[in-house]
């Protein structure tokens, strides 16, 4: 079974970025250098707290500085334990495991110009991307929406490092990112959206309507798009075992709880590791991994996000 290797690290520093966001500096327990990473990369963090809390955070530090990593964690209103632990329990000196850096949100190689649209904590992946473009001498802009100036993470950092490349939009000043700015980018521009689901889907739709090729539109969702109405369903395994998947549970979680060694890695429907064969039943795909053709073939499922339209799925496992 595929199980990813991890790196033991400890929390070297904690800084309060603003009311809701804390920055954590992580360093290797063995004082070894950490792997370098590419712009847009993230890590998975593994925290043992009763259950194993696995969360993904963008790396916000300099990709070439491997003495430490930095992540920024926003205390989520609907925290399922991850961000709450980071904010309320994590202390300087605490140890945890992290994955090697991964990148599901890479910079385009062929783009002539890069424009980043961020809302709130959606700024985080863009920090390493801008660092990379800046050191390469490539052209980019940042459009960044936040509730207020005080709640705007990395406000000072951005002003200091990229003084001519950002535009802030503060909703308490009635400023809003308007999709009409998409009309003003030259041909060859690639756009990148990161923030709440509605922010991403509105901008994506506008970009497509304006005629952006899909390959020039890049999005990063911190949580996979969720079905509006989660329904429980059952799966049957090869040996006849029945597994119930509750309304608030993923298929992967249900399999793991049952002691089944199902493969997984990213848990957000991006990497494809958790793929299982489906023999019978209709799949509701929620991943961003399979192609449309693969989804329509109804023969494979990513258990970390996808569900069943029928009452029962029969899995080849």
């Amino acid at each position: 079974m595929y199980k990813e290797k991890t790196i033991p690290v400890y929390v070297k520093a904690i800084e309060q970025e603003n009311e809701f966001i804390r920055r954590f500096t992580l360093a290797s327990v063995n004082e070894e250098l950490l792997p370098k990473f590419s712009g847009g990369a993230h890590i998975s963090t593994y925290i043992e707290h009763g259950e194993l809390l696995v969360r993904q955070y963008s790396l916000t530090s300099n990709p070439d500085d491997t003495k430490h990593y930095q992540i920024a964690v926003r205390l989520s209103d609907t925290s399922r334990g991850g961000s709450r632990y980071w904010h309320e329990k994590m202390k300087v000196g605490d140890q945890l495991q992290i994955s090697y850096p991964k990148n599901h949100f890479p910079l385009s190689f062929k783009a002539k110009h890069h424009v980043f649209y961020a809302a709130g904590i959606g700024i985080t992946p863009f920090l390493s991307m801008m660092n990379e473009l800046h050191s390469r001498g490539s052209s980019f802009e940042l459009y960044y929406a936040s509730k207020t100036e005080e709640a705007c993470a990395f406000y000072d950092f951005l002003q200091e490092h990229y003084p001519n490349q950002y535009r802030f939009y503060f909703s308490n000043k009635r400023e809003r990112i308007n999709s009409s700015s998409l009309e003003e980018h030259p041909i060859g521009t690639h756009v990148y959206f990161c923030g709440p689901e509605s922010f991403i889907s509105d901008l994506t739709e506008s970009a497509y309507q304006l005629g952006y090729p899909p390959s020039a539109v890049h999005t990063e969702r911190f949580t996979p798009p969720q079905p509006k109405d989660m329904q429980p369903f059952n799966v049957q395994l090869k040996d006849g075992t029945l597994v119930e998947v509750a309304r608030d549970q993923t298929l992967l979680e249900a399999l793991l709880n049952k002691g089944i060694k199902a493969p997984y890695s990213c848990r957000v429907g991006r990497c494809g590791t958790c793929e299982l064969q489906v023999v019978e039943g209709e799949i509701a795909h929620y991943d961003s991994f399979f192609s449309e053709d693969q989804k329509q073939s109804q023969s494979r499922i990513l258990t970390c996000v996808s569900r069943s339209k029928s009452a029962m799925l029969v899995l080849d496992v």
Binding site: E4, P35, S99, Y100, K102, G272, F289, S291, Q294
Partner: peptide
């Protein structure tokens, strides 16, 4: 070709 390309593109550092 599709399956192996997807496999390669999901290859992760450290693994």
């Amino acid at each position: 070709d599709d399956r192996i390309l997807q496999f390669l593109m999901r290859l992760e550092a450290g693994n």
